[in-house]
Design a protein around this nucleic acid. Structure first.
Length: 517
DNA sequence: GCCCCTTTGAAGTCT
DNA sequence: AGACTTCAAAGGGGC
């Protein structure tokens, strides 16, 4: 298990996380003891994964390992680089014990990112993920904002790091970490500063960056509009991928997509440059998803992300601890890098935006006497769990939508609430969501039945960090997602119906699903 | 054209 | 402290 810190103290990762990794190593025996149980559960869950997954990928781990064997160049380079970093910073990164990072399928580790490469407008996700540096799942955020030549930056940055950065116009796309990110990264994070990647040494560094640049920490919790240039550049001129510029194809600022009617104040705001959004660093599972999504898509010929994510979730649980640990490690590095790049950033910065937007929408609707909320209020219905009486919709009252406002309830309306009609396909989701136990929708769609909190989840595998007790109880997830947990072979499996849904989506016959249930 | 779905994990807020 | 909520990615589908 990786020993990530030598106690240098500059590791920005949470101590408990590191302890967790350490614990994981120390608790190897424990792990092995539990391995069978965990494995059984994982296998049980995995068995629910769709047929194609089973047929085409009888042993995903084996496949992955095979791929690792085939394409070990990049991970090795990366590890070598980390070694270099470790040496450089006094061992901040003890070389992970992993045989390689998970981003291993790439035949060419420097494949252009789809959004970057001018020659590949349509690069598959596989390529995209493969082109990602393990440390920088961040990079896909805004690669198109690569600006190879931050003009305002000093020019002798490489002197201290020993990196000779050739001018290059082409390589930025091959390695999407913003060319200069290292410039503001402390030496410990300046993994690019090591000339590990020959091609990287010239990766977009048209100009060397001065080591005299103020460290990112020297910037206070920056207003992004000030800290970032008009193109979403970091103050150092580094367009970090986590930065979502106000405009651009990525369109990550879903909060500003005009979903809600913007009041006049916001109209004024539109004139002002929008603040780029720095996204959260990806967690381990997100990194895993990014890497494996294309594979699942290819194997299962699925396109719907929800189904794919279900499969990926199951595969995630089917991973061994070691395999998961790779991603936890990557995620940890990701957070570290993010923290280095945006020391003043907090998840709070992006917190509650959707909620605020919904609230604003709700406030708008509250001012309308025919709003669903008012309608529900007149019906004496629960605002959260009941739907608008006359049309039996929770979110939007049809009559309200038709402009007539929500009428006073009639006796038939009220009776209809008690015995709602068979929902139309379009209505089914909403209806099922509100009345999950209604026999009308029996058997409920598995994707919806997963919302029924029937029993607490039993996770078959604790992530390393969780083993240290840092993470909040997994019941959080259960309470959040209110999964259904089926009794399966005497063992409760987490999200079994979710798996069923995924399997169903993946093409398993309903008969099989029913038998499984 | 926006939102939902669906997953897990991290980190936030709330009680 | 523990429970709960939000966001991160992705893209098809619904409305």
């Amino acid at each position: 298990m990786p020993q990530l810190s030598s106690g240098g103290g500059d590791d920005l990762g949470a101590n408990d996380e590191m302890i967790a990794f350490k614990d994981e190593g120390e608790q190897e025996e424990k792990i092995q003891e539990n391995a069978f149980t965990e494995r059984d559960l994982a296998d049980l869950k995995s068995s629910l994964v769709n047929e194609s997954e089973i047929n085409q990928s009888p042993n995903a781990a084996a496949v992955r390992r095979g791929q690792q064997g085939e394409h070990r160049g990049f991970p090795e380079k990366h590890r070598e680089h980390l070694d270099g970093v470790s040496k450089q910073d006094g061992g901040m990164y003890k070389t992970p014990a992993y045989p390689g990072y998970p981003f291993l399928m790439l035949p060419d580790p420097y494949l252009p990112n789809s959004s970057v490469s001018p020659s590949s407008n349509k690069v598959s996700v596989v390529q995209q993920s493969h082109g990602m540096h393990p440390l920088t799942s961040l990079l896909p955020y805004s690669n198109e904002h690569f600006s190879p030549s931050p003009p305002h930056l000093p020019t002798d940055m490489s002197q201290k790091t020993g990196v000779h950065r050739h001018q290059s116009q082409d390589l930025s796309g091959y390695y999407s970490l913003p060319p200069g990110s290292v410039g503001q990264i402390t030496p410990s994070m300046g993994w690019q500063s090591q000339p590990v990647y020959p091609s990287l040494s010239s990766c977009g560094f048209r100009q060397p960056y001065s080591s005299n640049l103020p460290s990112a920490s020297s910037y206070s919790r920056f207003p992004h509009s000030l800290m970032l240039g008009p193109s979403g550049m970091h103050p150092t001129g580094i367009p970090h991928p986590a930065i979502v510029p106000p405009s651009g194809k990525q369109d990550h600022d879903q909060y500003d997509r005009g979903m809600y009617v913007k009041p006049q104040v916001e109209a004024k705001r539109e004139k002002e440059p929008k603040k780029p959004v720095i996204k959260k660093p990806l967690n381990a599972f997100m990194l895993y998803m990014k890497e494996m999504r294309a594979k699942v898509i290819a194997e299962c010929t699925l396109k719907e992300s929800a189904a794919i994510n279900q499969i990926l979730g199951r595969r995630w649980h089917a991973l061994t601890r070691e395999e998961q640990a790779k991603y936890y490690e990557l995620a940890r590095k990701e957070r570290q890098l993010h923290m280095q790049l945006y020391p003043t950033w907090s998840a709070r910065d992006n917190y509650g935006k959707k909620k605020r937007r919904k609230r604003e929408k709700q406030q708008d609707s509250n001012t309308d006497p025919g709003s669903p909320k008012k309608c529900r209020a007149r019906f004496g219905l629960n605002q959260q769990t009941d739907w608008c009486g006359p049309c039996r919709r929770k979110k939007k009252c049809i009559r309200y939508l038709q402009g007539g406002g929500c009428p006073s309830p009639t006796s038939s309306d009220l009776s209809a609430i008690d015995s709602p009609p068979s929902p139309s396909p379009a209505h089914h989701r909403l209806y099922q969501h509100q009345r999950p136990l209604s026999p009308v929708c029996s058997p409920p769609p598995t994707s919806l039945s997963t919302r029924l909190p029937l029993s607490p989840p039993t996770h078959t595998r604790l992530p390393p960090e969780q083993s240290a007790g840092k993470r909040s109880d997994l019941h959080q997830t259960a309470s959040k997602h209110t999964h259904t947990h089926l009794e399966l072979s005497g063992k409760q499996t987490h999200s079994s119906t979710t798996a069923l849904s995924a399997a169903k989506a993946a093409g398993l016959s309903l008969k099989v699903l029913t038998e499984t249930q």
